[in-house]
Design a protein around this nucleic acid. Structure first.
Lengths: 348, 348
DNA sequence: GTGAAAGCGCTAACAG
DNA sequence: CTGTTAGCGCTTTCAC
């Protein structure tokens, strides 16, 4: 019933617990072949599994890093965690997850909820308590995150968000460049009046994406027209409303900073018999599941979430090896998927 | 730098470690008010956090349950985990996650990959090693799962899958009843020729959903026509192909066992100028993000994943309290969302 | 009230 | 090669 210990193995195998430990840890030449065999046999028959708690306590080493996720159910989080775990596995580390469930508790409206910092501290304490050797924070919507770890010299890395306290490294997708490429693609296809549906201004993602598209316009000597930029809130609904506003201004293409918002535009177009990929070109961001649900499929930019996880883990493990890492923003390229929802301006 | 211990607190507060421990654990009347205050002050100043490893080792109690997820990035998994965590939090337990990354490694083709059991054993050992008091297995696509925990009397509960070994409880959504309701809804709207796009036959979900719709037909004395059932593989592509086959047979409604498959049908309809919600009624399953992306929005059935997580956790914790739980299938209702993608047969 | 001491399961000197 | 021993940080009798 209760778990076997090395003590029991030692008794049954007629050896000392030290020998059992040595054998189990494969210390070279520390036991005769017969004893090795005996110990291994007894261990297997007892279905022995080392007690991680005791092991780590004794070794003073957990070989684990913590993940503080703002919300596990927000679409990007799982992919990032997956990336972290992949990287950790390679280096024989493991990841411990603390999920704050922020979105489940408060939705998108995270501002001015003091309770949040309680949740953060609880999550952090929990992880430290478990002796993690480092920690990765996963935000959402690229918000600015105001909490940072109290004192400890624990390696701490942020991802998918921007820490207020710039003394920690953070990992983001290169939204600016992605946006630049999107702009170039649209412009190269002849579009000059491009409507933009931005995310909220407090989102770092929004900021960067805006700068990128502006840069593309600038390169092509097309003046940026604030009048054809609508500020949205990431929802389908706002995309829908923005569509009518933008289309009435005669834009030939609409670039929304999320697939969800562009999906509202899509709905508007259908309702008004505007043919996507013919009468109007549409570009989204995130490359979420819904892009393939449309006819024609939606063009979008895909952040490499897995790679962001890798990078974040790399930054933590590097610090654990004593390397100093740059406490700056580490930026990873997106992939631009141009799909039939965009077309050249003469083609229609 | 390194973490403070009760020993250090004891020294600084001029008390014994036993007193520190008593104070920190709020043992009533075990220390004078002055000492309590002193200890608390020192603890705070040292930023003390109890060592979970040592604590649990000593207490012989981890107050944690393990989660073995087949793949964290499969859409339903995170929601279920969220539910488990919510339930655990109420009872002062916590969840430890072991992610096998099965989908990331092998995609949908999980059959005949012997390595899988290695991954399962590794995950299970890892969790047991950490002294979890129980375990929840989260599958995907309602497959039959052939691995079960080796020996240990550890409470073990499956969810979103069906264990081959029926001596463990498992939690599923009530797909049969959901399907029955979908069938009734369609029939009540006048549909008699209903095309079905099933998932793979080895999916328990497929089986149940098929039985449900058959039951609805039976109730209405409509003979079930195998010729208008296509077996798909959960993908959009197969939905697309099934659509042409089904529509040529003159069905007035198509019910696909996943939103993804129905989304292929949607594409087919657009390409062939068949008006969804007028010329044809469409019903999906899962109620995923994409249902709102369509115009008109897609009708679908929503499994209560969060509640499934709650239930699974409940079944584990109940066993920990010595209660015996039913080692049967525990089934949770879905919500049926009828949306404008379906219409009455005369309405068109 | 308070502290000394034992011990949770394990690893790592160290002696033999 | 093998076993004895100390001790990781903590909780918990049990004397005082």
């Amino acid at each position: 019933m209760s778990l076997a210990t090395i003590k029991e193995i030692a008794k049954l195998a007629n050896v000392s617990i030290a020998t059992v430990s040595n054998v189990l840890n494969q210390k070279p030449g520390s036991a005769s072949p017969e004893k090795v065999e005996k110990v291994l046999k007894v261990a297997k028959s007892l279905n022995y599994r080392p007690n991680y708690l005791a092991q780590s306590l004794k070794r003073q080493r957990s070989r684990s890093i913590g993940i503080i996720a703002e919300d596990l159910t927000v679409s990007q989080t799982a992919e990032i965690i997956n990336g972290i775990e992949e990287y950790c596995e390679e280096y024989d580390y493991e990841a411990l997850l603390a999920n704050m469930r922020l979105f489940k508790r408060y939705g998108n409206n995270l501002s001015a909820i003091p309770e949040r910092s309680v949740l953060f501290n609880r999550a952090f304490d929990n992880l430290v308590s478990k002796q993690v050797e480092g920690c990765i924070y996963i935000g959402y919507h690229g918000r600015e995150v105001s909490f940072s770890p109290p004192d400890t010299g624990l390696p701490f890395v942020y991802t998918y968000c921007v820490p207020k306290d710039k003394s920690y490294p953070y990992v983001l997708s290169d939204d600016e460049n992605a946006s630049l490429e999107i702009g170039r693609a649209l412009i190269s296809m002849g579009h000059r009046r491009i409507g933009i549906i931005s995310g909220p201004v407090n989102s770092f993602n929004s900021q960067k994406r805006l700068v990128g598209i502006q840069q593309a316009l600038f390169e092509a000597s097309i003046p940026y027209n604030v009048g054809t930029t609508v500020i949205g809130d990431w929802t389908r609904e706002c995309g829908y409303h923005a569509a009518s506003q933008l289309l009435s201004q005669g834009v030939t293409a609409i670039y929304a900073f999320s697939d969800k918002m562009i999906s509202g535009v899509y709905t508007y177009c259908i309702e008004h018999r505007i043919s996507v990929g013919k009468d109007i070109s549409l570009f989204g961001f995130d490359d979420s599941d819904i892009v393939h649900a449309y006819t024609p499929p939606l063009a979008s930019a895909k952040p490499d979430l897995q790679e962001m996880g890798h990078k974040a883990a790399e930054l933590v493990l590097a610090q654990l090896q004593g390397k100093t890492v740059c406490t700056k923003c580490h930026v990873l390229p997106c992939t631009i998927h141009v799909r039939p929802s965009v077309c050249s301006i003469g083609e229609a």
